[in-house]
């Protein structure tokens, strides 16, 4: 995201127009390589002539897959956002707890949550819960670590100011600690959200009977690459939409950072 001092709306739309142009260029280029000159292996790289009908045929399945994927993603991501922030604030505001827990966090943070899959399946009662748990753990770490970092980076003068106003407890957290740490927390949530899309497809590899990642893998097994590409494009459209909503919320929440 651009952090221009005075974000000109003209520049923004100009940027979008450029993106669309490149996007359209890529579609045409792909068409030239496949539909027109057939330079690629038509089986693995089918042309639009095959992809578009496949996409239309798959629409109900894709929509159903979307609902199933969101059923995993939404509870896992929201849960990780909330608990990551909560745990981060609780630990970040208590120096002693932080000293004790930080080495533990540093050790556990880099472990890919996909390595926990066998344990999740073994320990948790349902596949759905295991999938949610894998995504949850993957998102939790960046949110937690960034919340801790954000609190550590809070400007001492804000804290002085809050103390002069006798702000304490929950009000101190709500009025000063969270807003002050929010830029960093959003950085963590953004990283977590991107990670959640990767983990979603992994989590749908086991147990899932529907879902966008499942859809792509399922048809790849049958070498139905028209559907595979349709599924991948739909998946990226969903990811782009979710990120757009996230960016909007982030901009609204952090509008003050551009005016300091």
């Amino acid at each position: 995201m651009s952090r221009g001092k005075n974000g000109k709306p003209g520049g923004e739309t100009g940027g979008r127009f450029g993106s669309l142009l490149i996007f359209a260029g890529l579609i045409i280029l792909y068409s030239l390589f496949t539909d027109v000159f057939a330079l690629f292996n038509g089986m693995i790289f089918p042309g639009w002539r095959k992809i578009v009908p496949d996409a239309i045929k798959s629409a109900p399945l894709l929509f159903n897959g979307l609902l199933n994927s969101l059923g995993l993603l939404v509870p896992a991501v929201l849960g990780a956002f909330l608990t990551g922030m909560g745990l981060g604030v609780a630990v970040g505001l208590h120096p002693r707890a932080k000293r004790v827990l930080m080495p533990l966090f540093r050790a556990m943070n880099p472990v890919p949550s996909t390595m926990l899959i066998p344990y999740a399946i073994a320990v948790l009662p349902t596949f759905w819960l295991s999938s949610v748990a894998i995504i949850y753990v993957g998102v939790l770490w960046p949110v937690l670590m960034n919340t801790l970092h954000g609190i550590a980076m809070l400007e001492p003068r804000w804290i002085d100011n809050a103390r002069c106003l006798n702000l304490e407890g929950w009000r101190l957290i709500r009025k000063v600690v969270l807003p002050g740490a929010m830029p960093q927390i959003f950085a963590g949530m953004s990283a977590g959200l991107i990670r959640s899309f990767l983990l979603l497809t992994v989590a749908e590899m086991f147990g899932a009977k529907a879902g966008l990642g499942f859809f792509v893998q399922y048809y790849a097994d049958f070498a139905e690459y028209g559907r595979v590409i349709a599924g991948m494009m739909f998946l990226s459209a969903v990811v782009v939409s979710i990120m757009a909503v996230f960016d909007l919320v982030q901009r609204r929440t952090l509008h003050w950072t551009k005016k300091r």
């Binding site: 400007e155 003068r157 804000w158 002085d160 100011n161 103390r163 002069c164 106003l165 006798n166 009025k175 000063v176 807003p179 002050g180 929010m182 003050w256 950072t257 005016k259 300091r260």
Partner: peptide
């Protein structure tokens, strides 16, 4: 400790920038 009987004005950071 700090108290609201003593209002403090710092050099350039008495206000929270997000409010």
């Amino acid at each position: 400790g700090p108290g609201l009987d003593r209002a403090v004005v710092f050099q350039d950071y008495s206000l929270f920038p997000w409010m």
